[in-house]
């Protein structure tokens, strides 16, 4: 068994004239948890669908678990699991029936089934609800049931498309607890998410924008790789300060975090310029420090820059 779970080169998909994904190069190691982040419409779902063999790629190559998505899509399907954005549960079937139906489709042997079922239900705290119809579950429980269904055949690679969208924090924590447990067992996880705190938990993160992968690294390196410095300013009038700065530097450079202002500065001269602008506006700077950027800062920075380049 090779150490590479996913190898993608030059992958692309066009819908008519529009390229939803283009020129995607990526490699994911076995046992890794890889996070795909990007704004809506970046091409995350299209990428997932191509890799899981349900959407034909227009160009490029990819192997998943060692099989080509072009020639061996069905072999891939037996080895992976895919939880789509709206995981398709049968609302009129009970928790147990949903789980069993997927076990049947994957032809999980009968004798393995029961202990596995118990374990997955216990894991996701769904045991008390096993006789409940899926449509009567809460959003978080539905997602956990979806995950349980996706895990019933012990996949090598787990694809999750925004699995915790609209899920309460407690269920989200449960959900990630299960993911980590799977990771320990050597399952490779490929997850797309809109929550950047979740991206922080991934071993590597790919940032997608307008159909391309614009950055891909560990969360730590991504943050370090942000050029310049992130300046945090505390002023008495954060809103006025923001407006004054935005008018001069462009609104995308300034963001408000609570009462604090976050600003990118390319160099010391720019930091000087900022102080000058505020002074001119008659706003006093109470405190000023250089902070480590969060993934959100990184995300906003690269997406804005990519947009600016596209506009130019």
């Amino acid at each position: 068994m090779s150490d590479i779970a996913l190898a993608v080169s030059g992958l692309g998909r066009a819908f008519g004239e529009m390229w939803a994904v283009r020129g995607l190069d990526l490699e994911v190691q076995r046992g890794e948890i890889f996070g795909l982040v990007g704004p809506d419409g970046a091409g995350k779902t299209t990428t997932m669908r191509m890799l899981t063999g349900i959407l034909a790629a227009s160009e490029g190559q990819a192997t998943v678990a060692g099989f080509s998505i072009h020639d061996d899509a069905e072999a891939i399907k037996a080895r992976i699991s895919y939880m789509s954005q709206r995981f398709g549960l049968y609302g009129d079937l009970t928790v147990e029936e949903n789980l069993r139906f997927y076990a049947d489709l994957y032809e999980v042997p009968r004798r393995d089934r029961e202990p596995l079922e118990e374990k997955l239900l216990g894991f996701s705290n769904l045991t008390p609800f096993r006789k409940r119809q899926a449509r009567n579950l809460s959003g978080g429980m539905k997602q956990k049931l979806g995950l349980a269904c996706a895990l019933i055949h012990k996949p090598e690679i787990l694809f999750l498309d925004e699995p915790t969208n609209g899920v309460d924090p407690v269920s989200r924590r449960d959900f990630w607890r299960i993911l980590y447990a799977m990771l320990k067992k050597g399952v490779t996880i490929f997850v797309s998410t809109a929550y950047l705190d979740e991206a922080e938990r991934c071993s590597r993160v790919g940032l997608m924008h307008r159909g391309r992968l614009i950055r891909c690294d560990t969360p730590q390196k991504l943050k370090e790789g942000l050029p310049g410095q992130l300046l945090e300013l505390e002023t008495g009038q954060p809103r006025d300060a923001r407006e004054a700065l935005a008018a001069q530097l462009g609104s995308s450079r300034v963001s408000l975090f609570g009462g604090m202002l976050h600003l990118y500065t390319e160099d010391a001269a720019e930091a000087e310029q900022i102080r000058a602008i505020l002074q001119q506006a008659g706003i006093a700077v109470l405190a000023e420090k250089i902070i480590t950027p969060t993934l959100e800062d990184v995300f906003i920075h690269w997406v804005t820059r990519d947009d600016a380049e596209a506009a130019a």
Binding site: I54, Y82, F87, G88, Y90, L105, E107
Partner: peptide, 17 residues
């Protein structure tokens, strides 16, 4: 209906022929 509620997509990724 399966296409609408999203189960069709889910069925498509299973090894069912």
């Amino acid at each position: 209906r399966e296409r609408e509620i999203g189960t069709m997509e889910q069925l498509m990724v299973t090894p069912i022929r």
